[in-house]
Structures are given as structure tokens and as C-alpha cells.
């Protein structure tokens, strides 16, 4: 199968504290790839490095065969990388619909001058973007909240909205950071279905960081386990469940 994302020898420290050590990982196109590990293992840091929010100390990131290690985040988004955040980053003062609409900016940017002079094609396009945004809201089952300010949604809805906003950028790879955190059982189930749907219907590759083991086992094709910034195991859900290294890492983490 075709490789969409490849990490080679990624190192990252924060003030002398090693957060990631020689991380190697390959994500195949069309798969739902889970990244798990105890708290503080470095999962979020790795997603930040992949999306360009954090710089890396050493190593290379290939996205669709291209070395993007030094690309700013917005260029990675243009290439087809979308993401959500563990600490939600919705545009709180904007409505749910507008949150999705800005997602379309990437593919439909007309430039400031045409916005300032409100050229005719700008108006037409905005109508088009609005229509497409409503379709996405339908897709993620959030239409009934379209005119709510994003900050007034529940945490679960905000996480779903972040997925919708990312979908508007028409990504090929979607990075999800703990999408089920703060969701109740029913919401988590719907989320699982949505992630599957996104992959099955839109062919979007998903790299998902998650703590909810039931969800992970149900939706993922392959799982990579991170512990203290090192990859300690990789394999299918059943394989990982039985892996003694993984069990030790999780039992070692007293909650």
C-alpha cells in the first residue's frame, strides 16, 4: 500500500528534557492509524511536529513523498494535512457555520483586494462556500447548532466541529488528538462511526491519538505505541492487546 506519511528519526527535547527519541513511523494511505501511550508519552508533541506547530530537533518528515520537515503549518495544510486539538481550538467568537466556512478559505482564497472591493465573484463564491459548509455540518450532524457561537457548544460538539472545520480544507491526512476526551458513551460511539465514515466515504487517512481503548480497538487498522518518547510496539489491535511491553507500560502508569 502507498505510504502517505513517514517519520524518520524524529528527536525533540524541551529545555534538555527528551520528549521524543528517534521516532520512526509509517502511515499508509487509507488506514486508520492509532497512536497510543500513557500520559506524557509525547503523542501530542509528535502530532504538533507532524503538523508543524512545533519544530523538530532532528529527523525528517515525508508527506506524500515530499520532505516537509521545515514547512510552516499552513503549507502542510495546503498539501492536504488537517488536524484537531487535544485542547480544543475552535474559533469561539464565530458561529458554528462560520467555523466551517473559514476552513474553505484555503482552497478558495481570492485575495484581499477582491474582498475589499467586494467584487461580484466574491459574493457568488461566498454563497457557494456557505452551501458546502452546511453540507459538512449535515455530514457531522451539527446542522441544528449552525448559528450558535462555537464557544457555547459542549466540549464534545466542539471536538466534532473541529473535525468538520478540518474536512472543509479537503485533507488527505487527518490528525486527531484525543477526539473522545470529555465525550459520553453515546457521543463516543457516534464519533467512532464518523471517523470510519470519513475514511470509508472520503478516503481520508486518519492518524488518531486516543485513550479510549474500546474505541481504538474498534476503529483502527494499526496501532503504534509510544512510551517515554520511544516507539515500543506496533501492530494490529489484537497483537497490541497481547503485547507484554505494552501491558507493562500501561500497568506501570499508576492512576
Amino acid at each position: 500500500m502507498e505510504i502517505i506519511l513517514q517519520l524518520k528519526g524524529i528527536h525533540k527535547s524541551f529545555g534538555g528534557l527528551k520528549t521524543l527519541t528517534d521516532v520512526n513511523m509509517t502511515v499508509k494511505k487509507g488506514e486508520i492509524h492509532a497512536l497510543i501511550g500513557p500520559n506524557g508519552a509525547g503523542k501530542t508533541t509528535l502530532l504538533n511536529i507532524i503538523s508543524g506547530i512545533e519544530s523538530l530537533d532532528k529527523g525528517t518528515i515525508f508527506f506524500k513523498g515530499q520532505d516537509i520537515s521545515r514547512f510552516p503549518p499552513y503549507k502542510r495544510a495546503i498539501l492536504g494535512m488537517g488536524r484537531t486539538f487535544q485542547h480544543v481550538e475552535v474559533f469561539g467568537e464565530m458561529t458554528v457555520k462560520e467555523n466551517v466556512m473559514v476552513g474553505f478559505y484555503l482552497r478558495k482564497n481570492r485575495g484581499f483586494v477582491s474582498y475589499i472591493f467586494s467584487l461580484p465573484e466574491v459574493k457568488k463564491e461566498e454563497k457557494d462556500i456557505e452551501k458546502k459548509s452546511l453540507e459538512i455540518l449535515d455530514y457531522i450532524a451539527l446542522s441544528h447548532k449552525k448559528d450558535f457561537l462555537a464557544k457555547n457548544l459542549t466540549i464534545g460538539e466542539q471536538r466534532i466541529l473541529e473535525i468538520g472545520r478540518a474536512l472543509a480544507t479537503t485533507p488527505e491526512l487527518l490528525l486527531l488528538d484525543e477526539p473522545a476526551a470529555g465525550l459520553n458513551i453515546r457521543e463516543t460511539k457516534t464519533l467512532g462511526q464518523l471517523i470510519r465514515k470519513i475514511r470509508d466515504e472520503r478516503g481520508i487517512t486518519v492518524l488518531v491519538v486516543e485513550h479510549d481503548m474500546e474505541l481504538i480497538m474498534k476503529i483502527s487498522d494499526i496501532i503504534t505505541v509510544l512510551n517515554f518518547g520511544c516507539v515500543i510496539a506496533e501492530g494490529g489491535p489484537l497483537e497490541i492487546q497481547k503485547n507484554s511491553e505494552v501491558i507493562k507500560a500501561y500497568l506501570g502508569e499508576e492512576d
Binding site: P73, Y74, E89, E93, G103, L106, A166, T169
Partner: peptide, 14 residues
């Protein structure tokens, strides 16, 4: 407005 609310998220949507 998006940039005002979250620069990080703005960057990540391109």
C-alpha cells in the same frame, strides 16, 4: 476573526 480567536488553528487550516 479566526486569527484573533486562535492563531494555531488558523495556521492548521492553511
Amino acid at each position: 476573526k479566526a486569527i484573533h480567536d486562535s492563531e494555531t488553528a488558523s495556521l492548521c487550516i492553511g
